[in-house]
Design a protein around this nucleic acid. Structure first.
Lengths: 207, 207
DNA sequence: GTCTATAGGTAGATAGAC
DNA sequence: GTCTATCTACCTATAGAC
């Protein structure tokens, strides 16, 4: 099999098993994308059978969607905690995007980088799926379109609040910088200091 | 089938057929990635059978590699022509990267954007494969590692020649900006002016 | 809650006809 | 040079045993 050797199976309750499956799925989709990964990959890496996996999820696409919701929840909570926001109250949540209306654009950017720097597997999942989802018939195509629109709105709003010129253009630049740096970092994690490069690049965009 | 309806088959000689297959393959890999696309997708879209396709290529991976060489050749020639360089003489060619030792970094960046803006399918192919190839067992992993190293070297060299500070950092920023903007543009081609945004962002990195 | 068994389909690749 | 036929392997998913 093309996956890592299966881990020693141990007894888990439903909640533990679901979370364990999510993490295994993040890794598999990050490697092969939605079109390329198979539920067999996940089941084998998880140490259960395909039928066992399909007890928890209706099918491959359901597994993708649920894994995605899980990842978004994790990231939201991580960022909220990291930025010192108490819980998620006061934020408008939409497609996994939190509107931190009182956080500066720079802090949002660097804080996001600091959180992402600890989870390369999740960042890789995002990059692979985002590229795949450029096509209209990808199951996550609409999700990623809305996600991008929401992010750009959030960044442009923050830029406008800070009196920066051309806030929509700055939003595009900020998001481009973040994802471009993610690719550099994932490609060479040991040579690229993701957080330091993020600080350097955002300082060029927002002097 | 998940592909576009097959085009009316017409008689082609070997050279025409190979080129036609390359373009079909670019589209298929751009949609589904290497792990997700099938040689059947390509054959059907091409209007021939799988066996017919495998007359030209040994197998799936061979099709990927040959398509890639074709794409790199096309892009090299396009950029060389666009930048007004006569042919490819005088350039050091390595993994598809041309060292234009007398072209400014800004011109290299904007010129690349102008060329890419005409070929969204190829840019999408690159973005999907680059993300997939972050994993060490992808057939193009080593290729993309070398390609990135060569590009960064080329950019850093140009930056140093122009007397810019921290040329290695600038190289990372330039490449990140380019690929980040490519994602914005591919995600919303009608709303994003790829060349204009490229000019705006490079002006922030190289004032 | 997890498994066996299996259906029913699709994958990559080959051999040989025309 | 392209096709048909076919092999083997793998894929998702279901039904039902335990």
């Amino acid at each position: 099999m093309r996956n890592r050797a299966k881990t020693a199976t141990r007894r888990m309750n439903a909640e533990e098993r679901r979370e364990s499956i999510f993490n295994t799925t993040v890794e598999c989709i990050g490697r092969f994308g939605f079109w390329g990964f198979t539920i067999r990959d996940v089941a084998e890496a998880e140490g259960i059978t395909e039928a066992g996996l399909l007890y928890y999820f209706k099918g491959k696409e359901d597994l993708l969607i649920e894994t995605f919701k899980y990842v978004d929840r994790i990231i939201q909570l991580s960022i909220a905690e990291h930025l010192g926001i108490e819980g998620v109250s006061g934020q408008v949540l939409e497609d996994g995007i939190a509107y931190h209306s009182d956080v500066s654009l720079k802090r949002l950017f660097v804080g996001g980088a600091e959180v992402n720097a600890r989870r390369p597997e999740i960042v890789r999942l995002y990059m692979v799926l985002e590229s795949e989802a450029l096509c209209a018939d990808h199951p996550l195509h609409e999700y990623f379109r809305r996600r991008e629109a929401n992010l750009l709105k959030e960044y442009a709003y923050a830029a406008a609040r800070e009196g920066l010129p051309e806030p929509d253009r700055i939003a595009v630049q900020v998001l481009s910088a973040m994802e471009g740096l993610q690719l550099r970092w994932l490609s060479n994690p040991d040579a690229v200091d993701f957080v330091a490069e993020s600080r350097a690049l955002i300082d060029l965009i927002i002097p």
